Computed example of a mutant assay.
Amino acid sequence: MIDVRKRLKEFLDLYAHDIIYIRRDTRFRCECYVERSGETAPDCPKCFGTGYVVQIEKQRTRRNIGTVPESLVGINQLAQVGRFVPKAYVYYLEHNVKPEENDLILEVIWDINGVPRLIKEKHVISAAEQKLGYKGRVEFYQVYARYDQKGANDDKALTER
């Protein structure tokens, strides 16, 4: 029997790149959250505009340009008329990552010591699909993520922790 996890690990060893995964802890609100209005500061230097306390993780992934149906919740069209922009990216993550909708994926520029310095792209997870193997074991995740505008303080939130 094929061990999909092992095969994916071997594939990622050859072709993956590192990203920053921003995991929201929905049990705790960030101090930028305004209870009365239900709004958050989109450029909050602590939560990346999510409104929740976040955990920053380094993960390996492989990314492809994807096409997502217009009906998928949370998909925006952020392009001028006549320009082609991919609707989404598809990320492949290992079984232990356990991605959730509305968490963030940051494509970053790394320094020579492996420390993230600048955010190139910010993506919001629209859908995270478990890929199951034998007896329902989660083998990996296929994640659809859409582009999101980078906040003014996102680089600061990344580097000053």
Rank of each mutant, 00 (worst) to 15 (best):
D3W: 08
K6L: 11
K9P: 00
E10I: 15
F11E: 14
L12R: 10
L12I: 12
Y15E: 15
D18S: 11
I19P: 06
I22E: 08
R23S: 07
R24Q: 02
R27Y: 00
R29M: 01
R29H: 03
E31C: 11
Y33D: 11
R36I: 02
R36D: 09
E39R: 15
E39Y: 02
P42H: 03
P42K: 09
D43H: 09
D43N: 04
C44R: 00
P45A: 06
P45I: 01
P45C: 12
K46D: 13
C47Q: 04
T50E: 13
V53M: 03
V53S: 08
V54L: 06
Q55T: 05
I56M: 07
K58L: 12
R60Q: 07
T61G: 09
R62N: 02
R62G: 07
R63L: 11
N64C: 12
N64Y: 15
N64T: 15
I65V: 15
G66D: 13
G66E: 06
G66V: 09
T67D: 11
T67L: 01
E70L: 12
V73I: 06
N76D: 13
A79I: 04
Q80P: 07
V81R: 06
G82A: 04
V85S: 13
V85R: 13
A88E: 02
A88M: 15
V90W: 02
Y92M: 04
E94F: 02
E94A: 14
H95K: 10
E100D: 00
E100I: 00
D103C: 00
I105C: 14
L106W: 02
V108P: 04
I109E: 13
D111F: 00
N113H: 11
I119C: 01
K120N: 11
E121S: 08
E121H: 14
H123E: 02
V124G: 07
V124M: 12
I125P: 03
E129G: 09
L132H: 01
G133V: 04
G133N: 04
G133F: 00
G136Q: 04
V143L: 06
V143K: 07
R146P: 06
Q149K: 14
D154I: 06
D154W: 00
D155W: 09
D155P: 05
A157Y: 07
L158W: 09
L158G: 11
T159L: 09
T159G: 13
R161N: 11
R161Y: 10
